[in-house]
C-alpha cells in the first residue's frame, strides 16, 4: 500500500490531479476521524478534513518523499484542528481549558450531578461511551492518545506530527492514560 501511495504522489507532483483522488480515498476515514475527534462535531470535521487534503495537494512539492506521507498529512490536519480550536470562543465550549489551570476544562468545573459511570454505560454502547470520554480529554492529551492508539503512530512520529519534543509527548501520553484510567476503571 505504501508503494501505491508513493507512486500516486509522484504522479501528483508531475501534475496529474486525478492521481490525488486515490490518495484522498485511502486516507479520508483516518483524517476525518481524527478531525472529528479533535473538534467534536461533524460539520467542522468535514470542513477541516477537506481543507487538510486541499493544503496537502497545493503544497505537495514541499513533501519530502523520504518521510512517511501519513505523518506529513496528519501534521497538516492536526495543525488545522488546533488552529480551529484556538479560534473558538472559549465561553461556548466546555472542553476549552480554564485559564491558570493545567489541562482543566469546564467539564471539571461542573457540579457532579452526573450519574455514576456504570449507570451511564448501561444506557449506551460501550464504544460510544469510550469515544465520549476521549472527547472530554483536553485537546493536547486527546490528540496524542488518538495518534498513538487509534492511528498507531510511534511516539517519535507523534513528536514529528505535533512538532513537540519527544519528552513532552511521553509526559502527555502518560497523563492522558491516567486521566482515562480514572474514568474507565469502573467499567
Amino acid at each position: 500500500m505504501d508503494q501505491m501511495i508513493r507512486e500516486k504522489i509522484k504522479q501528483v507532483k508531475k501534475g496529474d490531479q486525478s492521481a490525488f483522488e486515490e490518495i484522498v480515498a485511502f486516507f479520508q476515514n483516518k483524517i476525518y476521524q481524527h478531525c472529528y475527534r479533535m473538534l467534536g462535531n461533524a460539520h467542522e470535521a468535514e470542513d477541516i478534513a477537506q481543507e487538510a487534503f486541499i493544503r496537502a495537494y497545493v503544497n505537495i512539492h514541499s513533501y519530502d518523499e523520504k518521510r512517511k506521507f501519513s505523518t506529513w498529512l496528519f501534521r497538516i490536519a492536526t495543525n488545522l484542528t488546533i488552529d480551529r480550536l484556538r479560534k473558538r470562543k472559549p465561553d461556548y465550549y466546555l472542553d476549552a481549558q480554564v485559564k491558570g489551570t493545567d489541562g482543566l476544562n469546564m467539564y471539571s468545573q461542573l457540579a457532579a450531578d452526573e450519574r455514576l459511570p456504570e449507570e451511564q454505560v448501561q444506557d449506551m454502547e460501550l464504544q460510544s461511551w469510550i469515544s465520549q470520554e476521549i472527547a472530554k480529554l483536553p485537546a493536547k492529551y486527546r490528540s496524542i492518545i488518538m495518534l498513538r492508539y487509534l492511528e498507531e503512530f510511534s511516539l517519535q512520529e507523534i513528536s514529528d506530527i505535533l512538532d513537540i519534543p519527544l519528552g513532552t509527548v511521553k509526559t502527555r501520553i502518560h497523563r492522558g492514560r491516567e486521566a482515562l484510567r480514572k474514568k474507565l476503571r469502573h467499567v
Binding site: Q17, F20, E21, V24, A25, Q28, N29, I31, Y32, Q33, Y36, R37, A42, E46, A49, Q50, F53, I54, Y57, V58, E125, L126, Q127, S128, I130, S131, I134, I145, Y149, L150, R177, L180, R181, L184, R185, V187
Partner: peptide
C-alpha cells in the same frame, strides 16, 4: 485495560461523498 478500551473505540467514517467534494474543490 484502558488502552484496549481506547483501541476498541468506534471507527468514524468520512461522509460518502467526501472524496468527490475534495476533488471538486482542488484548485
Amino acid at each position: 485495560r484502558t488502552i484496549s478500551f481506547i483501541k476498541s473505540a468506534e471507527q468514524i467514517e468520512a461522509p460518502p461523498d467526501f472524496t468527490q467534494k475534495v476533488m471538486a474543490s482542488l484548485p
